[in-house]
Design a protein around this nucleic acid. Structure first.
Length: 205
DNA sequence: AAAACGATCTACT
DNA sequence: GTAGATCGTTTTG
């Protein structure tokens, strides 16, 4: 029978996120992004991430210091940082110690559960396009700007969970993790050969 | 007040 | 693979 991931996959705790941002970005590959509200439960396996460093990363929103918009990046690890661009949302997870403004952008997840709900939110039935891309997955999971600063370790409404053995969402094949250095010291991580990643660059590796 | 700029997406070849 | 759409925020005059 179908088992609920909330009963077998515990939410990641704060100490998981209180580590080097590139390590967290890599370790998040294969973890589960979970969202629950009155409409139901949606779960996706994290397929692509990107690390934004606290130091020397001109592409990071924290590069020019704290302001009203990016304040969550300077807060405790394990919180959400949600940014709006092109009238769309991007979902980040704050890492390292409080005051160290690093974060991991979730670029793509593989739909695992609640696909019907994702299809409704996204207005498409093309599974590959449901959660491929940072703004698309935000729409599929209905993670609006309200979640900026949200504590993702509480296992409530929106959280990140381990892919613990025995539940319905276990990774069947050992994921091969690809790494590519990008400009401005950014780092991307993704499952090689996974079709649920956001761009052709990742697909080709 | 106007223009330029994005951590993007869709549609189409 | 890429042209065109998109719109809030920042920069410019």
């Amino acid at each position: 029978m179908s088992r609920r991931p909330s009963s077998h996959s515990g939410a990641l705790e704060q100490h998981f996120f209180a580590r080097d941002v590139t390590v967290v970005a890599r370790d998040l590959i294969g973890m589960l992004l979970c969202r629950r509200n009155r409409r139901g439960l949606t779960v996706g396996r994290i397929a692509e991430t990107e690390a934004y460093l606290a130091q020397g990363d001109s592409a990071s929103h924290s590069f020019n210091g704290i302001n009203r918009k990016n304040a969550s990046m300077f807060g405790p690890p394990g919180r959400a940082y949600i940014y709006t661009i092109h009238a769309r949302q991007c979902f980040n997870i704050v890492t390292e110690l409080t005051g160290v403004a690093s974060a991991v952008l979730i670029r793509a997840v593989e739909p695992m559960h609640g696909i019907r709900l994702m299809e409704q939110r996204r207005s498409t039935c093309i599974k590959r396009d449901l959660c491929r891309g940072p703004a698309r997955l935000c729409e599929a999971f209905d993670t609006g700007g309200d979640f900026d600063g949200w504590d993702l370790t509480r296992q409530c409404r929106l959280w990140v969970a381990t892919d613990s053995a025995g539940d319905d969402f276990r990774i069947s094949n050992s994921p091969r993790i690809g790494v590519t250095s990008a400009k401005d010291a950014r780092l991307r991580f993704f499952l090689t050969g996974n079709k649920f990643v956001s761009g052709p660059k990742a697909l080709n590796r």
